[in-house]
Nucleic acid binder design. Sequence first.
DNA 1: TAACAAATGTGAAAGAAATAACAATAAAAT
DNA 2: ATTTTATTGTTATTTCTTTCACATTTGTTA
Lengths: 208, 208
Amino acid sequence: MDTLPGKTVERLSQYRRRLLNLVEENVEYIFSHELAAILHITAVQVRRDLMLLGFSSVYRKGYPVKKLIEVIGQRLDSESGQNVAIIGMGNLGTALASYLTGLRPKLRIVALFDIDENKKGLKIGGVKCYHVSEMGKVIKSKKISIGVVTVPQTSAKKVASQLIKSGIKGILNFTHIPLEVPSDVYLEEYDMITSLEKVAYFVKKKKK
Amino acid sequence: MDTLPGKTVERLSQYRRRLLNLVEENVEYIFSHELAAILHITAVQVRRDLMLLGFSSVYRKGYPVKKLIEVIGQRLDSESGQNVAIIGMGNLGTALASYLTGLRPKLRIVALFDIDENKKGLKIGGVKCYHVSEMGKVIKSKKISIGVVTVPQTSAKKVASQLIKSGIKGILNFTHIPLEVPSDVYLEEYDMITSLEKVAYFVKKKKK
DNA sequence: TAACAAATGTGAAAGAAATAACAATAAAAT
DNA sequence: ATTTTATTGTTATTTCTTTCACATTTGTTA
Ligand SMILES: NC(=O)c1ccc[n+]([C@@H]2O[C@H](COP(=O)([O-])OP(=O)(O)OC[C@H]3O[C@@H](n4cnc5c(N)ncnc54)[C@H](O)[C@@H]3O)[C@@H](O)[C@H]2O)c1
Ligand SMILES: NC(=O)c1ccc[n+]([C@@H]2O[C@H](COP(=O)([O-])OP(=O)(O)OC[C@H]3O[C@@H](n4cnc5c(N)ncnc54)[C@H](O)[C@@H]3O)[C@@H](O)[C@H]2O)c1
């Protein structure tokens, strides 16, 4: 089974998120142009992405919502699910922990870490916070494959190398220190100030 | 002066962030390949972006760091700066407020909003929190052009339409409700679960 | 039953972004 | 003074992504 383009993966994630809402509203079928309108993209784009999944519509009814969610899941999720840790329980880490916990059944937040002894034992959304010194041990015993980094800049590199040493295979980095990872680790860097500056730039441009 | 490609804008933001760190470390010049290595992109990519700025290096010394920061600023920032509001002072909004305040001199966080009466008057990083009912008034009097939306999903649409009615020209949306905006408003949607799912997908793929 | 309609799936075309290739430049080495 | 070297700026090429265009499908209408 072929690897999907990164852009398609992003959109599939967004389709699913939106489709889950539609299920709640008892919507059973959706047309490509309806889904497109919701996401501000074109209907062709939607159809092409679904084509890559090999997923077909029911004639004149549209795409069956529940089935589509299932198929997206088969493609994006790993069958047995993946375990995730968040490192750095400050403002952002705490917000993320409570947001992500339970959001996707196949992406389980199973451990939190902090260097602050006072945060040891803390529970957020039922998930326990460990001291960083226990990282290697906990990551192995809980089979954690993904780490979310929300520590201060100064600790980012150290934490990343600890994660890699512990055998993690994917890192989502929220600090603005670019990290170095070996080629068998997938790294995604996200910086909020970049999003904000992008908005600022295009607002400035629109004015003219 | 031409509008830069969105991707270039994103990278310029990242170059600047990194260059600011280098200034602290007293680095005066940087080669395209050095900057590229830091950001995990190619040197050609860097040179091409800087070419679009019409910025040149000093022969065999590289690009002068301070000057480059300045030129990126001239292109990305608006001269007089832009004012930003954050709406929804929950976990994420609070984290963002403290993170963004003071981070970029030309992007001033000047107001926070919440519906909760208890949060009225609260100050984060010296910035005051107002009740949402004052939104129209405050946005106009403080000349706010950008809004960051971190309210619960259920309020996202309402808040967005309030912002638009108040005359805001750019929205950065952190909720996972897709918003509708008129064509003179620039919208950027960012969803953390999409980043995480992308990591998860490529981790799964790498295993094979 | 024939014409029409609504929507899909997809090959081909266009557009955007990244990479390669290389001439130009001037410092450093011989 | 000549050759070598490092690095740039830019054109050309390639690759990736989106959009166009349209034949196809089957329900609906006349
Ligand atoms: N707050 C935001 O909205 C925001 C947005 C974008 C990026 N960031 C970045 O995310 C990071 C965290 O931001 P924050 O506002 O949550 O900061 P914070 O200071 O509130 O939290 C950092 C936490 O990390 C812990 N920590 C420090 N060193 C550690 C280590 N070696 N191992 C484990 N834990 C450690 C600290 O005890 C603290 O709890 C920063 O790098 C920041 O630049 C934050
Ligand atoms: N926490 C995260 O890390 C995270 C990550 C991604 C996305 N999000 C999204 O961001 C949003 C906020 O998340 P959170 O965890 O901070 O939630 P939260 O519940 O902690 O905070 C929401 C805040 O918005 C306020 N609010 C409610 N209605 C409002 C209105 N009409 N006008 C102004 N303020 C209003 C509430 O009083 C509260 O303070 C949610 O939509 C969530 O899905 C959160």
